[in-house]
Design a binder for these strands. Structure first.
Lengths: 239, 239
DNA sequence: TCCTTCATTGTACGGCGCTCAATTTCCGTG
DNA sequence: CACGGAAATTGAGCGCCGTACAATGAAGGA
């Protein structure tokens, strides 16, 4: 256990990391053109020219692979929407919310299988391991959305009607993070953030799963109208 | 081909229908306690004491079975929400919308796998056969929702901001049905109906796929708040 | 240099959707 | 009633899948 080994992870570990990355890459490729259920350990191994059972040195089970895939994809989604949000100046709250929503849809259209992986039944027989899928990315998204609502709260507050929300309605971990980041925010604002999340998700989920296609061929118009309505319902002026 | 045979479908046909029904029943049972991907033709056959290949006399393929399952389940969902709506007097539009939304969520909570079947990736590798899944039930739902919006339109119209919706944005079949049922309704109202659909779907989909659970343990409160906000955004008074 | 550790292989098991030829069952007709 | 044919059913088989496990190979530290 020399110092050298600790500094550089060691040749062995590097190869291992590289192989792990290749497995994930191929898995994403398979998913992109065959759907999430086309991710088969045997197919990945075939593509890499290895034996089928070799994969099990890198992922204990297929579900484990799927889980890390979800995490990666979710993280890339959150990166993307946060970047879009930050392309708007912080004082343009309406613009930031609009950018967030639009980036979400554009990402989903560009990565339909990724969207299904995160927000749908990930894959045949897959069950999320205890703490739910991609807790970190999900919490990041939730917190960022709450930040947007916090910025809008001065305008939005008087438009909210009771609802009787308490801190105890929410998960303690989330409450801690939120109250830490936004000390003056009431629980109703967190409730609003979750509702906004749902509102951005609704039409998009319908579209991604093919329920909107048979009804309209201008889903973008619909989605934009919904975003504008949402922004206005927060007491902001879209432009 | 005697008259008797034409009147009664014939013993053979009756047995056939009965077996078909039994297959579907068992499939729903398997789905209820093992998820949609637990629906395996072999398992159904095993449960019925038949050979695995016998099922193929009744359903050409597994996807065909899933398709009729989706249709059945979707129909039962629409029946349910329409019944809930009709339990409110026609002049209480806010109440009818609220009842619709709540019935939707209650049905979903009682039939989580059914919800996933309709609104999610039905099942591993399943691809909807051309015209989308359950066209009839989906159109019924869409039309009924449009009816609710039509009733609210006198109040809602002035709260809608442009959006520039045209009849040509929507599927001709849907437009025909809608314009036939509600001759004076503008395209913006149809757009609103679809948006309302999305709004009712959003939070519920998040909840059903486990994205709300880690954040709140009062999803019902959240959903109700969203419904109230939605109703108010239509210019109606919830009570 | 040797020995341990880890990656990798091949084989195997059970389950899946689906196909197909062979068989049984049963109904309508001569 | 007996028979011919259609429909229902069977069983074997193909190629997938995830996973387990013992055996083999290589590579690195003592």
């Amino acid at each position: 256990m020399s110092r050298v080994e600790e500094r550089t992870p060691g040749r062995r570990a590097r190869l291992r990391a590289q192989t792990t990355a290749e497995i994930k890459t191929i898995a994403l490729k398979l998913m992109a053109d065959g759907g999430a259920d086309a991710i088969s350990l045997r197919a990945i191994a075939r593509e890499m020219g290895m034996s089928g059972s070799a994969i099990y040195s890198y992922f204990e089970t297929r579900d484990a692979l799927i889980t890390t895939l979800i995490d990666d994809v979710y993280t890339s989604l959150v990166d993307r929407v946060e970047a879009a949000r930050d392309a708007c100046p912080p004082d343009d709250v309406a613009g930031r919310i609009l950018a967030w929503g639009r980036a979400l849809r554009e990402w989903a259209l560009a990565n339909p299988e990724g969207f299904r992986l995160i927000y749908g039944d990930p894959v045949a027989g897959y069950r999320a391991p205890d703490a739910g899928p991609a807790p970190e990315a999900a919490e990041r998204a939730c917190l960022a959305l709450t930040g947007l609502i916090a910025a809008a709260w001065p305008h939005a507050e008087r438009l909210q009607s009771g609802g009787d929300h308490r801190w105890s309605d929410f998960a303690p971990a989330l409450v801690d993070t939120v109250r830490d980041a936004f000390p003056d925010l009431p629980p109703a604002a967190l409730a609003l953030a979750l509702r906004v999340w749902g509102r951005m998700h609704g039409l998009l989920a319908l579209e991604m799963y093919g329920h909107l296609g048979p009804q309209t061929h201008e889903p973008a118009k619909l989605y934009d109208a919904e975003l504008f309505d949402l922004i206005r319902s927060l007491g902001l002026e879209p432009h």
